[in-house]
Simulated scan of single mutants.
Amino acid sequence: MDVLEFAQCLSYVELIKQKKSTFEMLLPYGGALIGVVVGFVINVIRDKIKDKTSNAKKIICVDEEVHRLRNLFEVCASESMNVILSIYKGGKPSSTRLPPGYKAPLLKEFFPQVALKYSVNERYYLKELLSHTKKVEHLSEKLIASEAGVPMFMAALETLEASAYCVGVCDLFYKEPSRGEVPDLLKNLGFDDEQIDIYNKSNSYE
């Protein structure tokens, strides 16, 4: 190997070292960039999973709230009908066992946050439920405060009809046959035909 060839070899080796050094200089930056990207993706996936889990829990809370309200409305309807029957037969009910309240804190809080998870009809039913719980609560208070006789009878009738409507809304939310009509609900709650007929004749008290 002559001097010229040796010099060329040295130049080639030096060139390889330079290229390797450039790569080694860029490698830490590339690794950091990859780390940032991977971390970002992991955070996005984790947040999505967290949101999905949170929404699922909120939907469960809304469902349980609707179930609880439906039970309260059924009790309210049953007690209102008992008042009507007692007064119709000449009795004077001294007290009623109406539910103490119809608040729906979970439905009020969580429904707006997961509203888009429901269909158009489901959203309508939940909004109806929110607005009519206040009406049933007002009518229940009116019934409790009413004097025995016709005033209490009429208050019980109003409360019964409002409660039946809310039960029907809950039924529709659950995609079940609606019991929104008072006779249908009373029959389902165990009242017999004679008692239901008393409700049907109640217009004579208006």
Rank of each mutant, 00 (worst) to 15 (best):
L33D: 04
S119E: 01
D192A: 06
G35M: 05
K117Y: 07
R179K: 13
A7F: 06
E181H: 07
S80G: 01
S163W: 06
L98I: 12
A164E: 04
P177S: 04
I59F: 00
L143R: 12
F6V: 09
E24S: 11
Y118I: 02
L27N: 01
S140C: 12
E206Q: 07
T159D: 05
G91W: 11
V36G: 02
V41L: 11
G35R: 09
P100M: 05
I59W: 02
E109C: 05
V44W: 01
Y165C: 07
K134F: 09
I45D: 00
K187Y: 12
G101N: 15
Y29S: 08
V41H: 01
L15F: 05
P183H: 03
D47A: 10
A162G: 03
K134M: 09
L69Q: 14
K57D: 05
Y124E: 12
M154S: 14
E14I: 11
K117D: 06
D197K: 15
P28A: 11
I34M: 11
D2G: 15
V66D: 07
V62F: 04
S131L: 14
F191C: 05
D63E: 15
Y118A: 01
E147R: 13
M81F: 13
D193T: 08
Q113D: 14
E65W: 02
I42S: 07
C166A: 15
S11T: 13
D63L: 07
M154D: 04
H138D: 12
E176T: 13
I59V: 14
V169M: 10
H67A: 04
L26G: 00
R97D: 11
